[in-house]
Design a binder for these strands. Sequence first.
DNA 1: TTAGGGTTAG
Length: 728
Amino acid sequence: MIRNQIPIALTRFPPCEKKSLLHLKTLHRQSHFSAPELCQATNLNLLPVKTIQSPSYASILQGLKALKPLQQVHTRIITSGLAQNIFLSNRLMNSYASCGVLTVAEVIFQSMPSKNVVSWTILISGFSKHEHYLEALEIFRKMMISGVLPSAVTLASVFPAFVHLGMIKIGRSLHGFLIRYGLEINLFVETSLIDLYSKFGSIGVARKQFDMMVEKNMVSWNAIISGYSYNRFGKEAVQLFRMMQRRGLMADSITIMSLLAACMVMVCQQIVGLIHNLIVKNGFSNDMLVNTALMENYLKHRCINDAYQIFREELPVKDVVAWTSMLVGLSDAGYGKQAVRIFDEMTGTSNIMLDHVAFMCMLSCCSRSGALQRGKLVHSITIKTSFGDDALVGSATIDMYSNCGDLESAEKLFDILEEKDVVCWNAMIAGYGMQGRGDDAVALFFQMKCLGVLPDEATLVSILCACSHAGMVDQGIKIFDLTVKESCLVPTLQHYACLVDLLGRAGRLYDAYSLIHNMPLEPDAGIYGVMLGACKVRKNFELGTIISQKLFELDPDDAGYYVLLSNMYAAAGNWEGVKVTRVSMKSKGLKKIPGLSTIEIGREVHTFMAGDTDHPEYPRIIEALKRLITKIEAAGYMLDTRLVFQDLPDDAKREIILHHSEKLAIAFGIMNTKPGTTIRIIKNLRICDDCHIASKFISKVEGREIIMKDANRFHIFKDGICSCKDYW
DNA sequence: TTAGGGTTAG
């Protein structure tokens, strides 16, 4: 209604521009007129230059957010000789900054004969809002040097920059500055401080700040709720939300996003449903961001149908984040096949603007599932879209090749990648490590250090694992000591677990045991688990029994440790021990994780489980496997029934061993690939001893290279020999 | 001033 009055208003106030513009300004506030429309309506170019005074320009500029009319007004201001006006220059800068044209804003700033605190603040806020944090801080620094006292608004504008750059000390000292100058009583500044402290992990200080605030608005409530979510205090975030509701405030989309982030760190599916109701009730069902976050929650809680419902129906327009979230969510929740479908849609259509995060996630999915062909496809797309030069995407690609066992491609890429970050080096070191190439891993580690790249926690894990798999005990210990001494790296439990593994695997069980007792950290179940594994490999059943007792005290609900102990008893022929362990496992309702082997044939990923007859080609696979076993038996393979850790008749044991998932996958691979083709298999657990022996024979009689990745490392079987040299 | 997807090991 009001919109229609504008042309009439113009005809009514033709020459008296000041009055008309003031009237237009009022109309503009009421009518939400867009800036270009308003500018056109004022018909600037038809009015004589001198008739427009600076307050009118200031009014026009206030609502101006489109570049073209802004440039027109700017030209007019210059020709009117008003360019030196500090008030108008500030407004101009503000408008250019809002349009994202920071360079012009900066030029105006530089050309101003005198600047006030508002001029500085506008420029700082402009850079900060457009995520140019370093530039924002540099201008702030110059402002302080020139002796201009920042206002509360200036500080509220620089705080986000400190937060994003993780500059905790300066942020805190500025808080002190605020108090000294009595600037802290400002809603904006106080809210910025809540965000600053919670992002720096001081949620208690943030909460104090929040409680102290006399005036609170929606944004302050959102800041503290998101602060709790960010610090993984899901329950507290929800509690504060309830408090907010009791004060009569309605949740906006930001509140809901923060609550959904809180649910991601809680194991409480019910709350997700409640928030879903809130979304519908408060009218956010069409919000893409809210829907994406809700979908992630359903995936996290494995409510896959609800997630699909949102993805397919509530998100008619999906951006790259929605696609990436769906892919990662499905993959993390263990829905591999569904994840592959999303993956294919992402690579198969040009409608999705893939970005570097999407590529990284896609490569990570391929890496985890060993899908080399799909990984190669993503690599080729990154090259075509010039994302290949990105250090982060490059790292993810190297990791994908390393994890899929294609070290040659990993090396090639590693050599040509110009910007190598620490993750790149880690991925390559881990790649060598997983294939037992300890010398190469160590050489690369020292090369990295020579080039000045600082090793991080993951580097140390990777290099220690590499030494462990290669049996390089002394070298590993030396690197551990050196790294801890030279860098500020504080070793974690994971690092000690690697050391225990390094010693234990090499048979130095008592050194490993003494390390557990003497290390500066309290040992956890993970460390004892590694130790138990070493006892099993080294057949030290006495020590193994002691360790397992400790383990069951610390983590009584992990089925893996029971299986390990039971297998150890079985290997020693202690069937009573096996029985007791199995019964105790059953009484706790614990189930062994089934062994799974996957193989990629063409673009299909096939998964096999021992004794699982679901595969459509199962009868053919079994026939092929039988023929294969006869062939390797003729070559000297002898099936060892002692490896079945259950008290069963020999025939039954033979059946079990013959139907292990690794063997099914190998037989299927041979059936479906041309002679001579390399067979790549991924197993989720440690490869079984019999399958290890059988694979060596198969590689020889079939003339095939078999690359098998198990939970620990790669085994490359060729001509009857395994790359691990039977040390794993 | 508050809010979405993030590569490395095990």
